[in-house]
Amino acid sequence: MHQTLIEALWWALYTVVGIWLQTLLPGIDCLAPGLIVCLQARRLTIAFWLAVLWILIQEGSGSLAFGASILWYAGLVIFFYGLSLFLTVKSAFFGLFLSLFAGLWHFSIIFLLANLQELSINFNELLVQSLQTIIVFPVLWGIVSLIYHLRIAPGHVTA
């Protein structure tokens, strides 16, 4: 019970900090690394509910029609499990590939859905956002993972 409460408080705090970070880094998802940490720790129920909450947050504050965040999070989850079949989650290559995928996936989804919704996009801005995602994603993932595994759930198994 105590542990569950600590985790709930941690994820609530993480969501608040993540949203504030997103105001500083427009176009970057600062919540998604938390989902990867949850998957790493095999906290699948928490991961599911966090994904639902974060999808609503990203869709509500975003400017595209509903659906982009579902694809974004689903893609990350599928790629995480797919990649974990070939590489250990803790390896540097895993982080590198996942970050590259995150940047590419962000670019593809936004480009596809913006065209589908007949919206004009600033190609350079989208490219910069994707490159920023590649850089920011592993940094945030590392920080969140470290805090989570050292402070919040120290005894938890890593996938």
């Binding site: 969501t15 608040v16 949203i19 504030w20 909450l53 609503l56 947050i57 990203q58 869709e59 509500g60 504050s61 029609a65 509903f66 659906g67």
Partner: peptide, 25 residues
């Protein structure tokens, strides 16, 4: 996606929940 494109229901739902959360934060 198609149902929401026609009705806008999920967009309104996301605005009423997600945008509210972001605003209050």
């Amino acid at each position: 996606y198609t149902w929401n494109w026609r009705t806008g229901y999920l967009d309104r739902f996301a605005a009423n929940t997600g945008l509210e959360i972001v605003g209050w934060i």
